[in-house]
């Protein structure tokens, strides 16, 4: 698993690639928590290169969502592969998270909607 971050105006974009499982999710958690600790309120996670998300990976997204909701921030998920998106939807997470087809759409959405 590899993880990188970039800043697009006031949005923190996180790119993850590979498998987000019990063994690799600690690094992803540290990276995202570091951004949250710095006070980001707009977080975009790009899953274009993610093949598998275990429940550990999901926990990180849920924990980030909780933290951001407390400060009226928001998290957007972009580029989820169809099979992963399907499991997210069947599990009801489309009620919690906003999914976007690509990074550009997710970035645009921050302009009109600052909460999840």
């Amino acid at each position: 698993m590899e993880i990188s971050t970039k800043k697009l105006n006031d949005i923190d974009v996180v790119h993850i690639s590979g498998r987000l499982d019990a063994y690799t999710s600690e690094e992803a958690e540290k990276t995202i928590n570091a951004l949250l600790d710095k006070g980001t309120t707009k977080l975009l996670v790009d899953f274009a290169k993610v093949d598998y998300i275990s429940s550990s990976g999901l926990r990180i997204m849920l924990a980030s969502l909780k933290r951001l909701n407390r400060i009226k921030g928001s998290i957007k998920l972009a580029n989820l592969k169809p099979a992963l998106k399907e499991v997210f939807e069947i599990s009801g997470f489309n009620q919690l998270f906003n999914f976007y087809e690509n990074e550009e759409d997710a970035v645009k959405s921050f302009g009109t909607d600052s909460t999840v």
Binding site: S54, S55, S56, L58, R59, L62, A63, K66, V87, F88, I90, S91, G92, F93, L96
Partner: peptide, 19 residues
């Protein structure tokens, strides 16, 4: 330990397993 997050994760894990 956050029970809400654990229950959401359990729901997700269940879906992955039963599929």
């Amino acid at each position: 330990f956050d029970i809400d997050i654990a229950l959401y994760a359990l729901n997700y894990a269940t879906r992955l397993l039963v599929s």
